[in-house]
Design a protein around this nucleic acid. Structure first.
Lengths: 236, 236
DNA sequence: TAGATTGTTAATCGATTAACAATC
DNA sequence: TAGATTGTTAATCGATTAACAATC
């Protein structure tokens, strides 16, 4: 078996890594590569070619090589890619296990569902607090995380650096509270409110999860399918 | 004021509507148009030009005209678009208030959060049942919807036509249960499991909400921002 | 009629795919 | 060395934007 020798990784795990400007289309595919590589790792595969990976992932081999090359030569001609090396590289790029400090703003159903999920822990993010205005919730714990009074946000942020706020509060308060958070130094937002945060998007990173829009586009496709079936039936 | 006369809508509300093939990129923007039009309607605006709408939505006027024209001439030269007419047309396209029958498979935190949300009701979808395997949950009600035994799925589907299944069950069971649902006639899936459902995607419509991937791309951007700041600091 | 604004065609831009020389 | 497979350039495809004639 050929030994992979180039690109020797002398850095410690999750050390500083260069992130050149790369199109969002590529970035959005990285988590998917990450998942497939983890699976390969679990299966005990040590090497993979772009062709083999392309068959698994249902994308072209060309795209895989193009994507990975945005960040530097991770493979080796004639050999392919070393699974664990590529996995660690993509981990570093994505910032897995960087330990970003996260607060969840809004301890309703969704906020509580998120804090109890393993999603953050798995990816090495730390949820350090929940916030809410409801006196019945303040002081309680969910998933081992305490609900703080929304009025204590300033105090909390001055003593704990917060990298990311998960917005699961009512959409009516999204604009105001996101501005408040930004002024407290929070520059990353995972936005579930359905409200567009254009007022902060210049100075912060905003990732929107618009469940309503997602549901509607599914609704569209199902309706389209149905009416197409109807059309066919009419013809008969 | 100019009267809008063309494209007179003689159909009843939410009647059959022609959905030509249109690129997914356009479809994914429809819910957003829908939201902005609803807002205009609330404000009492009766007409809007592509230019004015483009300023609000932060997209080009050209794109708006291009998008809307995929489905036919909804506007009028020299006038613009009639807000309520356009709103109703986009409603019809998206299938708002078509009353699709929905079941939620998996009554965990996320499933319960969804059933208690107003998201489905607002868009005219009906959640008719929750399903789970947990004996402690079976028989209980959440948001007015009963939790059924997963074993009764066949029976339920044979008596109630189901248009959409929301998959909020553990990813390990996603493949098996989605195949089962497909065989029972369910052809629309809102997939929160994080598992890719390629085995059914030929015969069903699948909308994936991959929260983990979304979180990771946010993590990437925050880390990128941080390391860029570090770089600048180093220079000084 | 003159002004406004659409519908639509043409130009540009970006992303994906194909091809192949470099090289392990 | 021969075979395999990457890295990278060139070709294609699709989506976005610009421009303008049609027309209300």
């Amino acid at each position: 078996m050929v030994e992979i020798e180039n690109n020797v990784n002398t850095e410690k795990k999750h050390e500083r890594i260069d992130r050149p400007f790369v199109s969002p289309a590529v970035i959005r595919r990285l988590p998917r590569y990450f998942r497939y590589l983890r699976e390969l790792l679990r299966e005990g595969k040590t090497r993979i070619s772009s062709g083999e990976l392309s068959a698994r992932m249902q994308v072209t081999a060309s795209q895989i090589r193009q994507d990975l090359n945005c960040f530097g030569g991770f493979g080796q001609q004639g050999y392919g890619y070393n699974v664990s090396y590529l996995y660690s590289k993509i981990s570093d790029l994505l910032g897995v296990s960087m330990g970003l400090q996260v607060i969840i703003v809004g301890a309703g159903d969704l906020g509580r569902a998120l804090v109890r999920s393993t999603m953050f822990e798995k990816r090495g993010l730390d949820i350090v607090a929940l916030f809410d205005v409801d006196p019945d919730l303040i002081g309680k714990e969910f998933g081992g995380v305490k609900v703080h009074d929304m009025r204590d946000l300033e105090e909390f942020c001055s003593t704990h650096p917060v990298d990311m706020a998960v917005l699961t509060l009512p959409k009516e308060k999204a604009e105001e509270e996101s501005a408040r958070l930004l002024s407290l130094g929070v520059e990353g937002f995972w936005n579930f409110t359905g409200k567009e945060l254009s007022h902060i998007s210049k100075n912060a990173v905003v990732e929107n999860v618009h469940l309503g829009d997602s549901l509607m586009s599914l609704n569209y496709e199902i309706c389209r399918r149905k009416s197409e079936k109807d059309k066919k039936r009419m013809k008969e």
